[in-house]
């Protein structure tokens, strides 16, 4: 009976690409992947790389409260008011996919507090290979795996590896020590992902996050075009 009704006012609809005033809202990029693959380190490195040119904020989704947010705060990659932690009730994948309401509140709160923002990075809690972000929450998603987790992960696939807009294979510096075959990983990823890009990273040096940062810049250019 309310079919003719349109959304107005605060907190309208999740996927709206514009702010209530009509301007294009911040690009929202999700970063997911298994525990320990380097999601938080990637977020930290991206912030350091991009924060001088862009207005950035981060939303973390922890299994236990606020640990990842605390890591980012300790490392001072952004001022504290630009980092917000969402509590997930032991189900981080629910908070980024099935019930995104708390994450959307966090995104809006950050826009209100420190906006206008260019980029919001939404980091998922460490989860399994099936965890992906809802399109209602993010505009693009990065899936972070690492060579130490086994070089057969790209071959095994799963929604994260197969469909993420960017697959990051992290900790390449460890490959010789854990016996992971980077070429094989690249081939398997290509097989699973077709034309979707893959970035190999090692965050031991400051430039290590470069390929991911380049990809983010390209997405941002397309978003604001």
């Amino acid at each position: 009976m309310h079919l003719g009704h349109s959304h107005e006012g605060p907190a309208a609809v999740s996927a709206d690409a514009t702010r209530p005033d009509g301007t294009r809202r911040a690009l929202r990029i999700g970063l997911g992947g298994p525990v320990g693959s380097g999601k938080t380190a990637t977020v930290a490195a991206l912030c350091r790389e991009l924060r001088d040119r862009l207005s950035i904020a981060v939303v973390t989704n922890d299994i236990y409260t606020q640990e990842d947010a605390a890591f980012l705060l300790r490392n001072a990659v952004l001022p504290p008011e630009r980092i917000q932690a969402v509590e997930t009730g032991a189900c981080p994948h629910t908070a980024i996919r099935d019930d995104i309401s708390a994450n959307l509140e966090a995104v809006e709160d950050l826009e209100d507090a420190v906006g206008p923002l260019d980029l919001i990075l939404v980091e998922s809690g460490g989860d399994n290979l099936t965890a992906t972000f809802s399109k209602g929450l993010v505009d693009a998603q990065v899936f972070v795996i690492d060579v130490a987790g086994g070089d057969d992960i790209p071959r095994k696939g799963g929604p994260g590896v197969t469909t993420a807009d960017l697959l990051v294979i992290n900790k390449t510096d460890l490959a010789p020590y854990v016996g992971s075959d980077l070429e094989r990983m690249a081939l398997d990823a290509k097989k699973q992902r077709g034309e979707l890009p893959v970035a190999f990273t090692s965050l031991t040096s400051a430039e290590g996050v470069g390929p991911v940062a380049d990809w983010v810049r390209a997405r941002l250019a397309a978003w604001t075009a």
Binding site: P10, A11, S14
Partner: peptide
Amino acid sequence: RKLGRQMMRAARATWPSPELDALAAARP
């Protein structure tokens, strides 16, 4: 209030109504 705000978002997407809009505007 946090859960109320989240419920409001879901409500306005599922069963939109002027009454919900009015409450959302009064209690952002």
